[in-house]
């Protein structure tokens, strides 16, 4: 069955991994690309990064956090269920450097995407350092897999329950201040994380790439919902990205635009009876 979920695992509270049968996408996928799916007939089109793909068995792996009504709906599907619509691969593939010293940074659910990039960069023969961060130890996903693909792996938690206490950006600052050198920093996560990393690396003139999780509708360049100013020019994250030179991204604008529908998101959650409050 097309789009069938053949494996499901809870990686952390509200963070789920699914393996889906999607042979055409598995055959074409490249590092950094994403898919768009709809859970049901009335569903929103939601973009998710491709975490893994296997052209041989025709499967793709996705990781998502149940934050909104649509991702909660997705989380309700189990093994044997089919995703209503699935399309991809979308976006430009990441540029994988050669013979470089790379630092990959991810936070929370985006550690999954960071792992995907780290793996591909290691396979290409780069020296890979990863800094993964989360609020607390339970949310540090893909730890074991990352150990297998990184020359160095640092873990940072807000509460200090695992690894260093504090934030990924502060950790990067201390690494750079202690003389550590990188040819490339790759950051994926919330807008604030990506912006702070970008500000850190700028004075060091380290090439820094961020993967922007803009809001999207079609994901093929038709609507421009995902537009973001990069180097003073309007870019579409869906077809010109999602990877962009962090030092050129207008993060203020990016952050404002991804929060455009926060109010509606709360309404949708309330209707689904999952707003978290006791209303």
């Amino acid at each position: 069955m097309a789009n069938e979920i053949i494996f499901k695992e809870e990686l952390a509270p509200e963070v789920k991994l699914i393996k889906v049968r999607a042979p055409l996408i598995a055959r074409k996928a490249k590092s950094g690309q994403f898919i768009i799916l709809r859970v049901d007939e009335d569903g929103e089109r939601i973009p998710l990064t491709l975490i893994d793909w296997n052209p041989k068995d025709g499967t793709i792996t996705l990781v998502f956090k149940e934050v909104g009504a649509s991702t909660k709906d997705l989380g309700k599907l189990g093994v044997g269920d089919a995703i209503h619509d699935l399309v991809g691969p979308l976006g430009k593939p990441s540029e994988i450097p050669l013979h470089s010293k790379v630092c990959v940074i991810g936070r929370g659910v985006a550690i999954a995407a960071a792992y995907e990039r780290a793996k591909k960069m290691k396979e290409a023969g780069n020296n890979v350092t990863a800094i993964i961060s989360a609020r607390t130890a339970k949310q540090l996903i893909f730890k074991e897999q990352l150990k297998g693909v990184c020359d160095k792996l640092y873990m940072v938690t807000d509460d200090g329950s695992e690894g260093a206490k504090g934030y990924a950006n502060d950790f990067l600052i201390s690494l750079l201040e202690s003389g550590e050198k990188f040819d490339l920093v790759y950051a994926v996560g919330a807008a604030t994380l990506m912006r702070s990393i970008s500000e850190t690396t700028k004075p060091y003139k380290i090439k820094t790439i961020v993967s922007l999780n803009s809001l999207m509708v079609d994901g093929t360049g038709m609507c421009g919902c995902c537009r973001v100013t990069v180097g003073g020019k309007p870019m579409f994250a869906c077809v010109d990205g999602p990877d962009f030179d962090a030092h050129l991204v207008d993060f203020e604008e990016f952050r404002a635009r991804i929060h455009m529908y926060d109010e509606e998101e709360r309404i949708a959650l309330k209707i689904a009876g999952e707003c978290g409050c006791r209303c």
Partner: peptide, 21 residues
């Protein structure tokens, strides 16, 4: 984008019959 949301995604029916705002 405006017409895609309304025509294809039925955003006019948000939040009950469409999840697209």
């Amino acid at each position: 984008e405006f017409l895609l949301r309304i025509n294809l995604m039925k955003a006019g029916l948000f939040p009950h019959k469409s999840k697209t705002p």
